[in-house]
């Protein structure tokens, strides 16, 4: 087995009498993006803080690149890049000075550091503002710098804690694109969010976390199937649908079909795979289809199913 970039298990943190994180565990391989999806107060930041060695844990183990992570293990920390949830840049320093300072803490220096800082400034689109103090930056620019600092030293594991909160759609897209890019380059990424769309777009695997516990974990598809969700398919039709509905009910993969006035509603497992078959059955029954609408279940509905609550209230 190849070495996992991050492996954690049994993570536990108790604040006074509040169990903030309870038996959280997962792993991330190189080139993989793992999402922690959960609502406010679910325990995402607390988990991340233990994984990055900021916070003492009350239980569990963490290894990064095979090195055990504790609050004092500098060798494990060297492999990790952290993008904190709250913007963590010095307002009275320029963008470049911020990058340079943190780069030095990772043992970078001289020409290498300067070149890498320029590279990162390019990636986060701040090259033309490099020598301005960050206190004059917009929220989105600060967010981008916040991310830039985390990936300056090319960490094996990049941890991003809700990096797109309060960012306009354009900046958000730029951020998501750079994460995708880094992942393709082989970085392992841990991404927390309560935006379902971000998790769906970026993450190879997702852990759904609530009340400090991981309720379910897997690829989007796995999660959806785990809770027995089906794609909802709606066919716009002309003509009598009764025969078609009966024929559809007999089809493999179709869980339920309902005929309405000028339409047929179906619940299907893997609609994409069965769509041709469905359409031919319907046409054979003498019904003309004028439109198809497929609604795939998403993580939002999975979350709703698991917790009985919406992801965002």
């Amino acid at each position: 087995m190849t070495q996992r970039t991050l492996e954690c298990s049994g993570l536990r943190k108790v604040f006074d009498d509040l169990v903030a994180v309870d038996d959280v565990g997962f792993h991330i391989d190189a080139g993989e993006t793992y999402g922690l999806l959960g609502p406010n107060g679910a325990g995402k930041t607390t988990s991340i803080s233990m994984i990055s060695g900021l916070l003492m844990r009350d239980g569990g183990t963490v290894t990064v690149g095979g090195r055990e992570m504790t609050t004092t293990s500098t060798d494990a920390k060297a492999l990790l890049g952290l993008v904190p949830q709250d913007i963590a840049v010095y307002p009275d320093l320029t963008a470049r000075e911020n990058l340079t300072f943190f780069g030095r803490l990772y043992d970078m220096d001289g020409k290498t550091l300067k070149a890498r800082a320029d590279e990162v400034l390019e990636i986060i689109g701040l090259s033309d503002r490099a020598d301005d103090r960050t206190e004059d930056f917009s929220g989105g620019m600060k967010r981008r710098l916040n991310i830039g600092i985390g990936l300056l030293h090319k960490p094996a594991l990049l941890i991003l804690d809700e990096p797109t909160v309060g960012v306009d759609p354009q900046s958000r897209n730029a951020i998501l694109e750079s994460v995708e890019h880094l992942s393709r380059e082989g970085m392992a990424v841990l991404y927390t969010t309560h935006y379902m769309e971000e998790a769906e777009r970026l993450c190879d695997r997702v852990g759904i976390i609530d009340h400090g516990q991981i309720k379910a974990e897997g690829t989007r598809r796995e999660l959806v199937q785990m809770v027995g969700q089906h794609d909802r398919v709606r066919l716009e039709t002309t003509g009598s649908v009764d025969a078609a509905v009966a024929a559809l009910d007999a089809l493999d993969g179709v869980a339920k079909s309902d005929g309405g006035d000028g339409s047929i509603e179906l619940l299907v497992i893997e609609a994409g795979e069965h769509l041709t078959e469905i359409l031919s059955v319907v046409t054979e029954s003498g019904v003309a289809v004028s439109g198809v609408d497929i609604d795939e279940p998403n993580l939002e509905s999975v979350f709703l199913h698991l917790t009985g609550r919406a992801l965002r209230d």
């Binding site: 609050t71 920390k77 904190p84």
Partner: peptide
Amino acid sequence: HAGTLPRLLAAPIPQ
């Protein structure tokens, strides 16, 4: 206050 403390603590340096 600046939020930079987590960064320092996550860096590979002694406290």
